[in-house]
Write a protein that binds this DNA or RNA. Structure first.
Lengths: 111, 111
DNA sequence: TTGCTGGTGAACCATGTGGTTCAGTATACG
DNA sequence: CGTATACTGAACCACATGGTTCACCAGCAA
């Protein structure tokens, strides 16, 4: 299992829709801070902070080129998040198969 | 694609290691607030708040039985989170296959 | 050199979060 | 009945977060 802090940052980074949008945007190729800022109504400084959060979470990597900063996707941390969710889903499924399978029945009869 | 608010809450709920531990704990069967509180060094009120966050995120469901509250796992929202991550991973993979595949080369040559 | 452009950092603000304490309320037990 | 138990709610605290403004610095262009 992955280090807790890594998951903390990854999930926290993903918990903001602006940041998820940034990731989606970067999915179609690298972009600068100003390019990222345009679609949202917020300042450069604001976007810069978001990118920084994403970078510290390992979800994007950035590189200063001339006077602009290229941002592109990173992916390792996302795999960590996925891995935890998968693990947790197994827990859930195993629980259903186990002793208290009667919960499945109850679920079926609830209003 | 799922509603943004749903994802916000799900990811935010998952971004705390105490809450992830609670989910893991619930993986081995339902538990009351006091039972959940024991392993962590925090107060009942503290745990109650965490459970509330998890419940609002749709990750657990609770039911008041007598003077105690039974908490057990919910799962729909986790599927939503999983779904988004999967979608995002596809984005990433598609990007690698696309125009700027040269990034893969660069990645290999970075220090 | 002068000046525009893209990005940064510091300071500030309102709100949210993770935790506490303390004073209830409701149920079980004897 | 009285009392212990399990939780709940309000109020408070320190600190993080998402955003702003403003001043500034580094490159590029004329």
């Amino acid at each position: 299992m992955v280090h807790q802090q890594v998951l903390d940052k990854a999930f926290a980074a993903l918990s903001d829709s602006t940041r998820r949008d940034i990731l989606t945007r970067l999915g179609s190729g690298p972009a600068t801070i100003t390019e990222l800022a345009e679609p949202f109504g917020i300042t450069l400084t604001g976007i810069k902070k978001h990118v920084q959060v994403l970078e510290e979470a390992g979800l994007v990597t950035t590189e200063k080129i001339g006077r602009s900063r290229q941002c592109r996707l990173g992916t390792e941390r996302l795999d960590d998040a996925m891995q935890w969710i998968t693990f947790y889903q197994r827990l859930w499924e195993r629980r259903l198969d186990g002793l208290d399978a009667y919960f499945t029945l109850r679920k079926g009869t609830e209003s």
